[in-house]
Design a binder for these strands. Structure first.
Lengths: 190, 190
DNA sequence: GTCTATATAAAGATAGAC
DNA sequence: GTCTATCTTTATATAGAC
């Protein structure tokens, strides 16, 4: 009947993710995470071998899922435009999915610091690849910009839509609506 | 004939801005800045009273300039669509202007950490206001998202266009082209 | 699995000489 | 205006008891 056996690891991840996202990775100390959980720093080191290791723990799963998308994007498409829409729609699923949401926000908020962590470098690389399968290097500069903005439509729907009564599902739909407009113009206006 | 009299302050700003942008504010120590300049930390404290004070020093000028834009956006426009284009075009001028460029990139890269600095809060507030004069709260959620993406088109043209031979002036033009498309649709598709 | 206690390193910041 | 030297605080991380 003991309340927290085995799930401490998950609770650490949850609190760390929240604080890292809210205040930044560097600004959040292990002491602060430990206090929030009512344990000591030493307890954290039982579950994770270092501070970056906490980041690694929630990155691996995301990498695999993004790799799936990129692989799909690399295969020759029957219909280029439809493929782009499908990629972005699936990306939105990832982004708005249960765990994906908070992890991706964490990346948005800690881009710069994450450049120096291996886990962060991997994620950056994946997002770049994703942008690349949406608009290839041989496409025009405008096409590249449109593709990046389509991805960012998904990301920014989180904070750019300030109407508080909007649900996550609605944000996803609105983001995709605009993202699709952008994508469809990639070949549309040469 | 002494080489560096009086301009040390400016050299500190320049190096700090570069390192803060590249590695993040928290990850960059005063020791590192000092070493890069060939001086000691104590010298830094002669010119700036604290680490955040360095940030303040390059923020104030930007704030004034953004305030000018916001004020212009708050006045009743003759033609709403033309006003939006004008605002964004001026914003692009700021962004691609000599000093503006690097300072705005610094903000992009340090959003999260800057939440805890007064200077950062001010800048966030201004960018939010700018988004708000582009699409008002009574506009649709889609309009809000389009407005934010238009701003981001300017920001992301910096890294999203990966063709290396493109000049800054061209990036500005391409960004505005897409930004204007987005803005024009704010009232266009209800 | 969690604790106390501590090692170690590095940060921001200041005092006072030159 | 820049230096040396130092203070103070805080961080990540570890050792070993319970």
């Amino acid at each position: 009947m003991s309340e927290n056996t085995g799930n401490t690891r998950a609770r650490i991840q949850s609190v760390a993710l929240e604080l890292f996202t809210e205040q930044g990775y560097e600004k959040t100390s292990l002491r602060e995470i430990a206090e929030r959980l009512g344990v000591t720093k030493a307890a954290l080191y039982y579950h994770f071998k270092s501070k970056d290791d906490i980041v690694n723990s929630f990155v691996e799963d995301r990498l695999d899922r993004l790799d799936g998308l990129i692989k799909m994007g690399a295969e020759p498409p029957v219909d280029v435009a439809a493929r782009r829409r499908e990629l972005l729609s699936r990306y939105a699923d990832e982004f708005f999915g249960s765990t994906g949401h908070s992890v991706m926000r964490f990346f948005d908020q800690n881009q710069t610091v994450l450049k120096s962590l291996p886990a962060g470098q991997m994620m950056r690389e994946r997002l770049l690849q994703l942008a690349t399968v949406l608009a290839w290097p041989q496409d025009s500069p405008t096409a590249q910009l449109r593709a990046t903005l389509a991805l960012f439509a998904v990301h920014s729907s989180w904070f750019a839509i300030r109407s508080p009564e909007i649900t996550d599902a609605q944000r996803r739909e609105l983001a995709l609506e605009i993202a699709h407009e952008l994508l469809d113009r990639i070949d549309g206006t040469p």
